[in-house]
């Protein structure tokens, strides 16, 4: 039994822990969206759900030895120069030291994280903020006209024969 658990741990949890975290976060958000009675709590669940999706996308773009996707020529001379010397042949290094603008470093794509998920998630965050703001506005309006934010009470009032 221990062997099964250990192999399960080794095969599907440790190398894929990001998916476990995103699934757990997503389950929390989905549970809040389904079962909570208060509209604001539903919105909080929606925000958690969005966060889980963002986490999934960003964690897919991670590379093992990579840094953030910004090429820095200036600043931190020692580290960056050291990192790029590995993939520079001597000729291009010599030309780059002359400061000629046309010659560029050969960029090792394994040194930088994948920028595409970051861009997609930047837009997703923006859409999330917009939808959350609009949803808060609508729930304020609901509170103004029904006097409550609880879903069952709103349904009671909407039902024909309900008190109103």
């Amino acid at each position: 039994m221990d062997i099964i658990i250990a192999s399960f741990l080794e095969d599907s949890i440790v190398p894929k822990f990001n998916y476990w975290i995103y699934v757990i976060l997503m389950m929390i958000g989905l549970y809040a969206m389904i079962t909570k009675n208060n509209l604001i709590k539903k919105l909080i669940g929606m925000a958690i759900f969005q966060t889980a999706i963002i986490l999934l996308y960003v964690s897919v773009g991670v590379k093992a030895d990579a840094n953030i996707p910004i090429i820095s020529h200036h600043g931190e001379k020692d580290h960056v120069e050291h990192a790029q010397n590995e993939n520079l042949d001597s000729a291009s290094e010599a030309s780059s030291h002359h400061g000629s603008k046309k010659e560029h470093h050969v960029i090792d794509k394994n040194k930088f994280a994948n920028p595409l998920p970051h861009v997609l998630m930047l837009t997703a965050i923006v859409v999330g903020v917009s939808t959350l703001g609009l949803a808060l506005a609508i729930s304020q309006k609901v509170h103004g006209s029904f006097g409550t934010l609880e879903e069952d009470e709103i349904l009671d009032q909407l039902r024909p024969g309900g008190y109103d």
Binding site: S12, P15, K16, F17, N18, Y19, W20, V23, I24, M26, M27, L30, Y31, I34, S59, V60, G61, V62, K63, A64, A66, N110, N114, L116, P117
Partner: peptide, 27 residues
């Protein structure tokens, strides 16, 4: 329903690339 959804998603993750995989299709 949340547990069912979570189980389906987790059972799909064994086809996903590992954490920090440089040769995954996305990277």
């Amino acid at each position: 329903s949340v547990i069912i959804v979570g189980f389906l998603l987790l059972s799909a993750t064994k086809d996903f690339p590992n954490w920090g995989d440089e040769d995954s299709p996305a990277n």
